[in-house]
């Protein structure tokens, strides 16, 4: 376990790359859930906000040995010691790792848009609002009230749908419970995944499904050698995918 403070909660995700069919439902569900803005032309991928981005991988071989796979990438919610690369650098405390849950939050209204965190993240998990988000008139009605809309000039990123944790806690509190049951808090992408390739839960609880899957021999993390300690763990039985996950000389 990392040297930074970790509570008995450590929310993490396991994504089975072999099960992932690249259908992109996770990404669409995420955009709907988190009021992610969209523009008429989103093909400039280095300026397109997708909290959950899906990367394209292939084995580099040609016909008929060519194989491809898709790699969904939410914010990896790094546990690095003592701070995740992004929160460490923020000059205004707009992003922070919650020591009780391990979630890395980002508060857009605090953000001054210096983009230091974007530069510090090696996973491209952070996005800048290059434009003022705009919804064609009737579409404002489909905005989720649990997630505030952002404005031009600030950074945003996946929060593991932390508002769902807030709501789940609200419900538990109202019922007089302090602890959440397994599965009461699940991000939108995991809930939507039709192939059930994504599993979410408490990595600190050794009985949880995520904790078990995280120990699988098929498990790997992205760029393990950088020491960022992501809480998103991938599974694959394919060697070429493992090779693409980390720089190994």
């Amino acid at each position: 376990m990392s040297g930074n403070k970790s509570g008995k909660l450590s929310y993490g995700m396991v994504i089975d790359v072999d099960k992932c069919t690249g259908c992109m439902t996770c990404a669409v569900a995420c955009q709907q859930e988190n009021n992610v803005p969209f523009r008429e032309d989103e093909t400039n991928k280095v300026r397109s906000i997708t909290w959950l981005e899906v990367f394209y991988l292939d084995n580099g071989k040609s016909y008929p040995d060519h194989r491809k796979a898709y790699l969904p990438r939410p914010c990896l919610q790094c546990d690095a010691d003592p701070y995740p690369p992004c929160t460490f650098v923020c000059p205004v405390n707009a992003t922070q790792r919650d020591e009780e849950t391990g979630l890395v939050s980002h508060i857009p209204v605090r953000c001054i848009g210096c983009r230091y965190c974007i530069s510090a993240c090696s996973y491209h998990a952070r996005y800048f609002n290059w434009w003022d988000p705009k919804w064609p008139k009737p579409m404002e009605e489909m905005l989720t009230p649990e997630v505030s809309t952002r404005m031009r000039g600030v950074v945003e990123k996946c929060t593991f749908c932390v508002h769902r944790l807030q709501l789940a806690k609200d419900k538990a509190f109202a019922e007089g419970r302090r602890e959440l049951d397994d599965g009461e808090y699940v991000p939108a992408c995991v809930e939507a995944c039709p192939a059930k390739a994504m599993v979410f839960g408490n990595l600190s609880d050794s009985h949880s499904e995520v904790a078990k899957l995280a120990k699988s021999p098929k498990a790997f993390r992205l760029l393990e050698r950088l020491g960022t300690k992501p809480k998103v763990i991938y599974l694959s039985g394919q060697e070429w995918i493992h090779k693409l996950a980390d720089n190994v000389i």
């Binding site: 919650d98 939050s105 807030q166």
Partner: peptide, 10 residues
């Protein structure tokens, strides 16, 4: 009680 940002912000 936790003062983490995401306890109150969304």
């Amino acid at each position: 009680v936790s003062n983490a940002c995401d306890v109150c912000h969304k």
